[in-house]
Design a protein around this nucleic acid. Structure first.
Lengths: 161, 161
DNA sequence: CCTATATAGTTGACACTTAAAATATTTAGG
DNA sequence: CCTAAATATTTTAAGTGTCAACTATATAGG
């Protein structure tokens, strides 16, 4: 290994699963950091803000806070804060849900949609470049293996509940 | 897909690389969250504290703050804060570096080492369980593909610098 | 030697994140 | 109908994370 990073802590004696986990984590951190810096430098925004807008871009009719929270895989309190910031900047708007007075519906404003679409184009280019190390077949294999892993994690959780 | 999560935002039209990235991110978040909750529930500690101690467990002679920062893949300021907390709890200690008066060497205290070893055993069990979805061969393939991806990211970065 | 630059670490400002408590509303049972 | 439990959201406290500014020390060239 050329560079000391999260994986450095793994040694020959460790279980293969542990080494795999550290590499998975290091790789994800590397990509995430690259995207975060790109968004900061090019658009003075953050990854969580971009993620929230990405979810809303897929849902023209808007999403309830709870649905946003589930899809972003973060807690509700977190979504409240990020939404507050985006709302203050006029990029998203909250509106009362018609069928449930406890709920709020969040959606992109026209300005928010424009801003997101611009960023998303460049964001996708970064991702394609970073995954350029893998050919079509390798990407498919990786996608399937991660799918298997993820499915297993979901099932384990259901077992508990 | 059965559950709405980070991947939900990906659609048929998206570039394969983007869908792969979202799955990589979702899977990593899932595992990370599981480990974080385990450490919190069983040992009332956090993942960053565990990670820092894990790095030190591999380096009996201790590590300089900067080396810790590189290996943990986080900024120096962050390491200062986590180290402060662990030091306050008597789990690590700072000592002056003999050859460089700017530098500090951090190492586990005996109590820190005992605490880490206990947690590490259980932590490894969690990881092995979570990766139980994959057989030996699949783990090797996943490990190699991530290695290829990671190597490519490192090279791109060197190119810039 | 002496100054310019680089490096090691800390600090402060700000954003993100979780968990738990609090509020408001809905739903389910009796 | 009425109350208990569940759900949707916000708030708060504490920890994590970045970046940029700062202090202290080291190193390189003249």
């Amino acid at each position: 290994m050329r560079v000391a990073d999260l994986e450095t802590r793994a040694t020959r004696e460790d279980h293969e699963a542990l080494r795999l986990w550290l590499r998975l984590l290091a790789t994800t951190h590397l990509i995430e950091g690259r995207v975060r810096r790109g968004l900061q430098e090019r658009y003075a925004t953050t990854l969580p803000r971009f993620d929230l807008m990405a979810q809303l871009d897929r849902a023209p009719e808007g999403l309830k806070m709870g649905e946003l929270s589930r899809r972003m895989m973060v807690t509700g309190g977190n979504v409240t804060g990020i939404t507050d910031g985006l709302e203050a900047d006029g990029l998203v708007e909250r509106s009362a849900d018609v069928s449930d007075r406890r709920a709020l519906r969040v959606r992109l404003t026209p300005a928010g949609r424009r801003a997101f679409r611009t960023m998303a184009t460049e964001h996708e280019r970064w991702i394609v470049d970073m995954f350029g190390a893998l050919d079509q077949n390798q990407m498919t294999v990786l996608f399937d293996l991660l799918g298997r892993l993820k499915q297993h994690l979901r099932l384990e959780k259901e077992g508990q509940a």
